[in-house]
Design a protein around this nucleic acid. Sequence first.
DNA 1: CTAGCCTGTTCAGCGACTGAACAATGACAT
DNA 2: ATGTCATTGTTCAGTCGCTGAACAGGCTAG
Lengths: 111, 111
Amino acid sequence: MSQTEQDLRVLRLLQGQPDITQRQMASELGISLGGLNYCLRALVEKGWVKMDNFSGNPNKLKYAYLLTPNGVRAKTRLTAHFLKQKLAEYEALKGEIERLKTEVAQPRGSK
Amino acid sequence: MSQTEQDLRVLRLLQGQPDITQRQMASELGISLGGLNYCLRALVEKGWVKMDNFSGNPNKLKYAYLLTPNGVRAKTRLTAHFLKQKLAEYEALKGEIERLKTEVAQPRGSK
DNA sequence: CTAGCCTGTTCAGCGACTGAACAATGACAT
DNA sequence: ATGTCATTGTTCAGTCGCTGAACAGGCTAG
């Protein structure tokens, strides 16, 4: 999976559910905790996600992961980008599948 | 891309064109020369591909990359495997595309 | 106060590469 | 023969996106 696609999946998850633990995110996306932390850090670095202390207590470990305005814009842009890309993929798969069917039906070297 | 899919792409390339340079292969597959060499080495290690000196001269650098009998069997098996997987991917993409269309049409936070 | 649980953080290691340098060979011109 | 050059495969340090495991800080129940 490409990094930008992973980004979009995280953004989608957070927009619907800002108060979610990193472990829940990781499980939802099917990756490890360390891996998710790595992705999330990159999103914060890009300014797309902000980690806010939950309920205003400065010493709590639990965070809310909020999309910044730039994050919302990025999500819209990425969504459009992947819609386009996935439509192309879809068409490409048709051809790929036909080719595979042919090869399975008539393997070279068969008698 | 998964390693096994990359394997299949290399096998397909070689079955059609055993006398091809590593640079041509890399270019065809859209990866670097070092990367292709890495993949190819793994295929030789698995016994799916044999590197033969071209034209019987033991000191030539140019090789022919031949599929072994096991290589041919592996290619058939992988082809069937990916046919099945890609049909599933195809179905999954339909849903994914519909979801993306909805999000593009009705972005959250729009007035 | 202590034990246990839930948080996020960190880090060594790994797989699949990239990019660049390198080395061996053959062909060609001088 | 000798020097140059293009063409080949090989090697290696470094990067990226992770995994799995250990770690540390804070809350809650007993």
